[in-house]
Deep mutational scan, measured.
Amino acid sequence: MTEYKLVVVGAGGVGKSALTIQLIQNHFVDEYDPTIEDSYRKQVVIDGETCLLDILDTAGQEEYSAMRDQYMRTGEGFLCVFAINNTKSFEDIHHYREQIKRVKDSEDVPMVLVGNKCDLPSRTVDTKQAQDLARSYGIPFIETSAKTRQGVDDAFYTLVREIRKHKEKMSKDGKKKKKKSKTKCVIM
């Protein structure tokens, strides 16, 4: 069974824990209790493949930012979460993405942009803004509501699919490099 290491990042209060708990335990946590770091595991079937999701729910508070490099190193894919009623959390996505790329030393890291709290009427981040940002990053965008469960499975499952595509691409690139290195030079 394939294991996928997913990391949920975003500013404090955007609903990272609520999304994760909704996926794992099928219930909505409405009281806000700032996370330092929590880890969850769940076995699911995605596109006919049974897999184990190892999900790291991270601290959004700035005082825990020193811990970010460590979990970013171990993560295979990242859910970059903002709240649709919090423009600052949307603007912060850029910083999370840049930090992930720096730590992973790669421009090509599996990510999904997630606009959470889409059940709320007080939207300050337009869907088109988020779609445009995701398009500019070359990553999928999904709106979710941890409260109603809308888009929750889709967000995590899409990230797994992005990781699969990335692994497939990397193995193809690896095979191309191996083929090239088999060419021999004969000096007579």
Rank of each mutant, 00 (worst) to 15 (best):
residue 2 T to E: 13
residue 3 E to C: 04
residue 5 K to N: 12
residue 10 G to I: 01
residue 11 A to Q: 04
residue 14 V to P: 09
residue 16 K to A: 01
residue 17 S to H: 00
residue 26 N to T: 08
residue 35 T to V: 00
residue 37 E to P: 02
residue 38 D to P: 00
residue 41 R to Q: 02
residue 41 R to S: 03
residue 41 R to A: 04
residue 43 Q to D: 12
residue 43 Q to M: 13
residue 45 V to D: 13
residue 48 G to M: 06
residue 49 E to Y: 13
residue 50 T to A: 09
residue 55 I to P: 00
residue 59 A to P: 13
residue 60 G to Y: 01
residue 63 E to I: 03
residue 64 Y to Q: 14
residue 64 Y to D: 14
residue 66 A to H: 12
residue 69 D to L: 03
residue 73 R to H: 15
residue 74 T to V: 08
residue 75 G to L: 03
residue 75 G to P: 07
residue 76 E to K: 02
residue 79 L to Y: 12
residue 88 K to V: 13
residue 90 F to I: 09
residue 91 E to A: 08
residue 94 H to Q: 14
residue 96 Y to V: 15
residue 99 Q to Y: 14
residue 99 Q to P: 01
residue 100 I to C: 13
residue 100 I to L: 14
residue 101 K to T: 08
residue 102 R to A: 09
residue 105 D to S: 14
residue 106 S to T: 11
residue 107 E to T: 08
residue 108 D to V: 05
residue 109 V to W: 07
residue 110 P to K: 02
residue 110 P to G: 02
residue 112 V to T: 04
residue 112 V to N: 00
residue 113 L to H: 01
residue 114 V to L: 10
residue 116 N to S: 12
residue 117 K to Q: 13
residue 118 C to D: 10
residue 119 D to S: 14
residue 123 R to Q: 13
residue 125 V to Y: 09
residue 126 D to F: 05
residue 127 T to Y: 06
residue 128 K to Q: 07
residue 129 Q to A: 10
residue 129 Q to H: 05
residue 130 A to M: 14
residue 130 A to S: 07
residue 137 Y to W: 06
residue 138 G to I: 02
residue 145 S to L: 04
residue 146 A to I: 01
residue 147 K to L: 04
residue 147 K to R: 08
residue 149 R to I: 03
residue 150 Q to D: 10
residue 152 V to H: 11
residue 154 D to N: 07
residue 154 D to T: 05
residue 156 F to H: 13
residue 156 F to M: 05
residue 159 L to P: 02
residue 160 V to E: 11
residue 161 R to L: 04
residue 162 E to K: 10
residue 164 R to N: 15
residue 169 K to L: 07
residue 170 M to I: 04
residue 172 K to C: 14
residue 172 K to F: 08
residue 181 S to D: 10
residue 181 S to R: 12
residue 181 S to Y: 14
residue 182 K to G: 06
residue 182 K to L: 09
residue 183 T to E: 14
residue 184 K to N: 05
residue 184 K to L: 02
residue 185 C to G: 11
residue 185 C to R: 13
residue 188 M to L: 03
